[in-house]
């Protein structure tokens, strides 16, 4: 009886049952549907422009995938984007740093912000959720306090190449994202570092007893999250040409939704960068598709909120059935 029930299941090739494959199929159907509904959607121009718009979220989603695979979370990413954007503008304008130095400085601030998260999480054992809620408030507060609500604009022309320029007809920042995505994907699949992330997420105690450097890996992961948020801030400032203290507000929702939609378990232990890439595309598609059908921006965050809850619900009910 049970054999008969299993037979058809075995007939389905393994790669078709993967979460990423299913998502990719849904993505293609959605693309085709939106394309049929609106002729402006499936144009190279529109798709490349959507790629430009999703880069900031995408950059942060890469280390967020790592963080969630270890069973952690980083809610402070949006605030770090705000802080780094302010530090870029402030150090350039008020400290008189040359812009390249200011860019490095802003990245360093992002790295330190993430490092502080990681340090307190690993050394003092503050749960990641609470630590990053606290630093969400702190980093956003620092951005507000340092900037005193002044915005900075008037950056030199060359700086806009990153956020508005093209390379071989493709938005510059999209190429950066693709390269980093490849690096992150390979690192997760093929390196000891990547496999350690899964081990930590699956069973942290077991990982420790297996002599894996759990704390150091976690520290690296949270630092990467801060660095990526810093990079996203620079891309964002370059794209919108101005620095404001409320930049990156609410990014944590989009980023976490993309990662979770991409099949990374919110409980840790499983997930892939390729899944995150598809999740990211789906989030952007959702936004663009809704915008083209005349839905305003505020309503799209409702849909993303629903998608976040539903994808976790479905994933966890599938997981329970498998168990």
């Amino acid at each position: 009886m049970s054999l008969a029930a299993e037979a058809p299941a075995r007939a389905i090739p393994w790669w078709l049952k993967r979460h990423e494959t299913l998502l990719a199929i849904i993505l293609v159907i959605a693309l085709a549907g939106l394309g049929a509904a609106n002729e402006r959607f499936l144009t190279v121009d529109n798709l490349l422009n959507q790629g430009r718009l999703m880069t900031e979220i995408g950059l942060i989603a890469l280390p967020m995938t790592f963080v969630i695979i270890t069973g952690g979370i980083d809610l402070s990413v949006g605030a770090v984007v705000g802080l780094c954007a302010i530090m870029l503008g402030y150090s350039w304008k008020n400290f008189g740093f040359p812009l390249p130095v200011a860019i490095v400085f802003a990245l360093a601030v992002g790295g330190v912000a993430g490092f502080v998260n990681g340090l307190v999480i690993t050394r003092i054992k503050v749960p990641p959720l609470i630590m990053t809620i606290a630093t969400l408030a702190l980093y956003r507060g620092l951005a507000e306090g340092i900037s005193q609500a002044h915005s900075v604009r008037g950056y030199p022309e060359w700086f806009y190449v990153l956020g508005q320029g093209d390379l071989f007809g493709v938005p510059t920042q999209l190429i950066v994202l693709m390269i980093l995505m490849l690096v992150a994907g390979v690192a997760l699949d093929r390196t000891i570092f990547g496999r350690t992330l899964y081990a930590i997420g699956a069973n942290e105690t077991a990982a420790r007893f297996s002599a894996l450097s759990v704390d150091r890996v976690k520290l690296v992961v949270y630092t990467l999250s801060g660095l990526a948020s810093g990079l996203a801030a620079i891309v964002l400032v370059s794209r919108v040409t101005t620095t404001r203290m409320d930049m990156g507000m609410g990014y944590e929702l989009d980023v976490i939704a993309a990662v979770v939609l991409g099949g990374t378990s919110i409980f840790g232990g499983s997930g892939t960068i390729w899944g995150t890439a598809i999740g990211l595309a789906m989030i952007q598609l959702l936004k663009n598709g809704l915008a083209l059908t005349g839905v305003k921006g505020d309503a799209t965050i409702v849909v993303i909120g629903v998608a976040l809850i539903l994808s976790v619900l479905i994933a966890s009910s599938l997981q329970r059935r498998r168990d």
């Binding site: 702190l138 507060g141 620092l142």
Partner: peptide, 11 residues
């Protein structure tokens, strides 16, 4: 504008 930073530091 420093209020939020202070609140964050406090928590």
């Amino acid at each position: 504008y420093w209020t939020d930073a202070l609140r964050g530091g406090l928590i």
